[in-house]
Structure formats: C-alpha cells, structure tokens
C-alpha cells in the first residue's frame, strides 16, 4: 500500500559543505515538505569519507528503513567537479541498490529557494511587498540572483523570479546557470534589460535584484553592479546580507524539498512513475564549464 507521504533522502556535496537530509512530504500537499533530519560537515576535502556515515546516522536516528524511501535527491551542479561526482555517484549507487529514482536538483535552485524563504518575512520591512504589490509610484519586481564561486576566478549565476505570496517550494528560473568572470558581470549590469542573460526589467518601473549565496561573493558582485540605477529605471541591486540570510550555502534539506516539488510537478500520481525519467544509470552532474574540461 502506498504511504500518504513521500520520503526522500537528499545528498549535497556541491560546495565545501557536504550533507544529507531526510525529507517527508504529504503526497496531497507537496509544498508542505518538511525536513525530518539533516546533518552536514563543513569540510570540502572529506565528502567521500563523510557522506555515507552521515546518511547512516540519520537513518539510524529516525528509524527510516530503505523500503520507506521513495526518492534519492542530489545536487547535480553547478559546483566543485569532484564534489558533484562524489554526491551524484553516491546517489546513483544508493538509488541503484534500493531501486529508487534519482532526482537531480540544481545547486543554484537551492540557493534561490533558501533566499526566497529568507526574504519572505523581510521584504515588507524594506518598505515594499513584492510581485504585483504597489510600492509608491510603481510596481516592484524582485529577482533573485543565485551565485556560487567556481575555481579560476569564475562564478556561476542564475536568476530566479520571486513570485507573489504564497511562495512556491521552487522558484521559477529565468534561464540557465551562466559561468561568468567579474568583468562579464559588470558588462551584464551595464547592459541589463537588453541582454537575455540578465533581464531583470519590469514592465513599468522598479526591480530589485537580490543576490543570494556566499556573502563575500555577493558583496563583490553588488559592488561591481553599475550604480543603484541601471538603464532600466529604478533597478536596485541588493545583497541578502549577513544576519538575515542564514542560508548562504546549499542545505541538503532544501535539496530534498525541491526534489519533492519537481516530482510532484512532473508526476502528480506518485513517485513510481518517476523511475524511468530519473534512472540511476543515466543521471550525470551538470558541470556548466566554459570549456569542455
């Protein structure tokens, strides 16, 4: 008999933080997905040693049996290539052995969702609502720019729409992740509104671009954005600053919740049908590298 909830084990090793979470969601109401347990270690070089012991301890602590699980979720990128391979291969191996689907989740989707949850209670306090709410002389659009450092002085960035309340689990992405250098970012800021990559314009006036991710990178990107007001009128760039964005790194719990959102959207009937689409034999990381290697 099918349980009334989905149970997910989520892995994330895309950044220096590597962790595991167990997430449960009512099938009838996936948006109410809850993190049942989660644990992580902040040591990038030790994902290989840490990941399964973390999973082992969470399963033991919750008493969840492999047979209770419906999905294996994993961040597939962007991120550290080696980290992604450890997480994705582990997820594939677990899903293969347990005969479950692997649900790939984008690292920047995770950062954006976390920023959305952080912003929800804060934005009204900034003097405005968001979405279609009125703010002074015009409408106010909020775009979240999720950013993640790569090696070689590059970073990944992807824009997401912050839709009106109530917040969905996963924020709709505005295009694919981009690999950029700081100079690209500056140029994109100057051209904002004209380039597809960074179109944050709103139909009638004001936009707020909020950067989400590691504080030092967000601060740097904010500093390089050409002024508070670009060519699209009253666009402002902010950084979801220290203190109120506690989720500046991907969390395994978010990975699990986004996996639920994805499967619920793709497969309202139940996880069983998701198996072919998410085969452990075929899921691969998304490296988003500029060049092939």
């Amino acid at each position: 008999m099918m349980r009334s909830t989905w149970r997910v084990i989520a892995l994330d090793t895309a950044t220096d933080r590597g962790g595991v979470a167990l997430v449960e969601a009512p099938r009838a109401e996936p948006a109410a997905a809850q993190v049942v347990a989660s644990a992580w270690a902040e040591r990038g070089g030790q994902h290989s040693a840490n990941l399964l012991p973390l999973a082992d301890s969470l399963l033991a602590a919750t008493g969840w049996k492999p047979a209770d699980l419906d999905l294996v979720a994993v961040t597939t990128g962007p991120g550290s290539f080696t980290g992604l391979r450890i997480g994705v291969t582990t997820a594939k191996g677990l899903a293969y052995g347990w005969r479950k689907p692997v649900v790939p989740v984008g690292t920047l989707d995770v950062l954006a969702a976390q920023a959305g949850w952080s912003l929800a209670p804060v934005l009204p306090g900034l003097g405005a609502g968001w979405g279609e709410q009125e703010r002074g002389d015009g409408r106010f659009r909020v775009v979240i720019g999720a950013a993640l450092r790569s090696r070689r002085g590059e970073f990944y960035v992807q824009l997401f729409e912050l839709p009106p309340q109530p917040l969905p689990l996963a924020l709709p992405a505005l295009g694919e992740p981009q690999v950029m250098r700081l100079a690209d970012w500056q140029a994109a800021g100057v051209a904002a509104g004209e380039s597809d990559a960074l179109d944050v314009s709103s139909s009638n006036g004001e936009s707020l671009l909020v950067m989400a991710g590691e504080a030092s990178l967000c601060r740097q990107l904010r500093g390089l954005w050409p002024g508070g007001r670009g060519r699209i009128g009253h666009m402002e760039l902010r950084w979801a600053g220290e203190g109120w964005n506690e989720w500046d790194k991907p969390e395994p719990g978010t990975v699990g919740r986004l996996a639920v959102a994805q499967v619920a959207a793709a497969d309202p009937g139940g996880a069983a049908d998701a198996r072919d689409a998410y085969s452990p034999l075929t899921v691969v990381p998304r490296y988003y590298s500029r060049s092939e290697v």
């Binding site: 962790g19 948006a31 347990a37 270690a41 840490n50 973390l54 301890s57 602590a61 949850w117």
Partner: peptide, 15 residues
C-alpha cells in the same frame, strides 16, 4: 498551504 520556514537542524554528529 504557505511554505513554512524550516530552521536547519543542527548537525547531529561532528564529522
């Protein structure tokens, strides 16, 4: 059902 904020659980065990 509006999404609730879920505080990240503290790491269960030091690695």
């Amino acid at each position: 059902h509006p999404t609730r904020m879920v505080q990240p659980a503290a790491p269960l065990t030091a690695a």
